[in-house]
Structure formats: structure tokens, C-alpha cells
Design a binder for these strands. Structure first.
Lengths: 210, 210
DNA sequence: AATGATATATACCGACAAGTAGAGTTATTT
DNA sequence: AAATAACTCTACTTGTCGGTATATATCATT
């Protein structure tokens, strides 16, 4: 209680024991890339040890077990990597939200600076029974994206940006469905321009409806 | 060469040794369902032994190794399960092809009589290095679906069913993208009516373009 | 310099993976 | 009935998995 005030020292530099031989956030970044590219089941802890340049006990000491490490990687992914989503959600009008999201998705999913596709889609799409916990967590994340769109479109409806009898649930689901499909395409080798063409096709047909 | 004429006996019933204690096609059917639901990596041969009611050496004797078994399951899936695809491709007009495919997909992907989603999508979407052969094969299968649509739309163009400046590649890619996204949705628990709503949304916007 | 705290390194654990050996069983053929 | 072909069964091998015990190295503190 009162005795942890000492921890509020703003610069607790001196750490007492032997210092860490690796940069924690850098290691997590690398782990994210491996999980992103190979999925949860496709990645072994030994793989990570090799690729991260850190030995196993240190890995477990810093990040817990494999599932916790994956969770932390997912959190990093959502907060720092797939930022185009929140940028799209903050767009002015509903149609701008849609366009920004889909175009942003085409670019993000094929960005050569990181693995292709969405980690939330391909991280654990199907799995054995021992992996179903991660499977479920990713389903929740996907549902959350959909719910964000649904809410955004609901408020858009009240502002008159959207036809009042728009089915916002289906519209949100359509968008995330397209996104998830684009993710599969990206992991299958689709290029950025191919995905942009697909998006343009979807958007063309869309602009006729409002 | 000439000495295998005897094998052309239309009813080679008498098989010499001890008869099989299981129905081969029935076992393959069950194996398909397991792979379909759990993916390649998520399914272990021991799982299959338990669920198929057949012991391991018999399984290996009849179907080769795990990869060959998976390949045979995929073949069964494509020829006997996802038949709605070829039905859609054989539809009269291009717009009927699109509608039949998407509506058929919504029903197929959520059909309660078999695992949800597409085996070709979730069978090995991402994987470690030792599974990449299967990964690649499924990519080829997905590309083949796309190519079938592209060809169908090309002939539709010559028949005047489709606007002559239609980008048939992108149209085909759009359709398969939507399909793959719907597959992800189905494995995430989306219901048939939800997917049908998504499809209707896509079709509405589509019908404006021709 | 000695102590205590923390991190690293090697080597290991039990569980389970894919795949197989070899003995036993059940049929047809001669 | 004897021989042989084909299948089944138990038990095993080898390798890898996630995870850890133990010993050692490196720092701040005293």
C-alpha cells in the first residue's frame, strides 16, 4: 500500500541485478512478425528462440508462456500495426470511413515491411482442441472490429450521412467479410494493385447505393 | 502391360487375403470432416485413429502418410462437397453465375451437416515451414477457382452478357475474396441468414453496374 | 571485497507428434 | 489341410513440442 510509493520514482534506472541482454520491445516486435507470418500453431518456441536471438528461459521469464507471448504480440499488432483501422473509423462521413478502410486495408495487407495478411485472421483460423482458446480470442477481436463499424454507421445514420433504412449490421459485416477475404488473398500472394482493383470494384458498386 | 488385362475384370470381388474391416470411402469421409474442422496442423494422426475407429497401420496402409490422406480428403471435398461451385459456373448468364455462387456459398459455408467454412481456406492458411507444401497446394486450389470465374466471365463478355469493358480478372477476384471472407465469417460463428444478408448487400450494389 | 538480486546458458523433462516393426488373425488358393 | 496373401493389433522408435531445474555470470549495494 503505502510502501510502494518508492516505486513512483520517475527514473528508476538502477535495476539492481544483472541487466537484460536484449531489448524487450524489440524482441516482442520480432515475435510478432513470426506469429504473424506462421500463425500460432505454426510457430514453435524453439523457432522463436532461434529467430529472436534470446534463449528460452529468458523468453519465458519476460513473456510468460507461449499463449501469453502471443497475446502480447496481438496487443502490439492491434495498437501499433493495424492503425489504419482507427484512422478509417475517425473519418468524417460514412462513405469516407468505408473508402479509407478498404483502401487502407489493401495497402496494409500487402505492405512489404511486414508479413502479409491480417494476423487476427490467419493467427489461428482453425486449430486443434488445445489451441481453441487462442482461436476464440481472435474470433472476439474480429467481432470487435465489426462492432466498431456497426456503431460508427449507427451514428452516421443519426447524422443523416447514411440512408435511414440501412442495415448497419449487415453493412459492417460486409466490410469485415471483404477485409477478411482480402487477408486470405494477401497471404496467398495477391499484390497491392490487385487488391486495390478489387476494392475499387466494391466501392464503385457501393457509391450507387446512397 | 498385357498381363494386367485380368484386372479389367468388372467384378474382381474375391480379394485373396483378410478382408478390410472398414469401409474405405466412409473412413475418408470422416477424415475429411476432421481435417475440415481442425485444419491440417490442428489434426493429428492419433486424433484420426480415435475418431475414425481404425488403427494406425491400417490407416497408413490404405492412405499413405498424413499429407497424402489430406490430399485425398481435399479431392473428395472438391468433387463431392463443394459442388455448388460448378453448379453456379454452369448457370446461364453471368449475373446468374454470381448470384448462384454467392447464395450457394452462404448456404454451403454454414450447412450444419458438415464443418463450417471452406476447407480450402482454413485447411492450412498459415503454417510452419514443414507444412508449407500443403499451404502451397491450397493456394493453387484457390487460384483455380478464381481462374474458372475469370474464364466464365470472359466467355460471358463475348456473348454480350457482360459490359465489354468489364475487368474480368478483378471481378473474379472480387467474388473469390468475398467467398474467402465469408468462409472466415462462417468459421467464426456467422449464421446462414447473416451471410445471406451480406450477399444480398453485395448483390444489390452489383445489379446497378450492368 | 563480500553479499544479494537478477539474468543467462546448458541441459534436461514428460507429453505427444508422425511413422513403423513384427507378431497374430482371417480370408482365398492350391 | 497347407500355404500364402492381406489386414489388424500392440508396442515401439525417433523427433519435436512446451516448459523448466540447475548452475553460472553480471550487476548494484553494503
Amino acid at each position: 500500500m503505502a510502501n510502494n510509493i518508492q516505486n513512483e520514482n520517475p527514473t528508476p534506472k538502477k535495476t539492481r541485478g544483472r541487466p537484460l541482454a536484449f531489448d524487450e520491445s524489440q524482441v516482442l516486435e520480432k515475435a510478432l512478425h513470426v506469429f504473424w507470418a506462421r500463425g500460432y500453431e505454426g510457430t514453435s518456441m524453439s523457432d522463436l528462440v532461434d529467430l529472436l536471438g534470446i534463449n528460452k528461459p529468458s523468453l519465458y521469464a519476460k513473456f510468460g508462456n507461449k499463449e501469453e507471448l502471443f497475446d502480447k504480440a496481438v496487443e502490439l499488432y492491434l495498437t501499433k500495426k493495424s492503425v489504419f483501422v482507427s484512422e478509417a473509423l475517425n473519418a468524417e462521413t460514412a462513405s469516407q470511413v468505408i473508402e479509407k478502410f478498404l483502401i487502407g486495408a489493401a495497402k496494409f495487407l500487402t505492405d512489404p515491411s511486414h508479413p502479409s495478411g491480417s494476423m487476427i485472421v490467419q493467427g489461428a483460423l482453425s486449430c486443434g482442441e488445445n489451441t481453441s482458446a487462442i482461436h476464440q480470442k481472435l474470433i472476439v477481436k474480429r467481432a470487435f472490429l465489426e462492432a466498431q463499424f456497426k456503431e460508427r454507421f449507427d451514428t452516421a445514420k443519426t447524422k443523416g450521412e447514411l440512408n435511414p433504412n440501412t442495415d448497419t449490421i449487415s453493412l459492417a459485416k460486409y466490410l469485415t467479410t471483404l477485409y477478411q477475404g482480402m487477408s486470405v488473398q494477401a497471404t496467398s500472394g495477391a499484390t497491392q494493385s490487385e487488391l486495390v482493383d478489387v476494392v475499387k470494384l466494391a466501392l464503385e458498386n457501393f457509391s450507387a447505393s446512397h
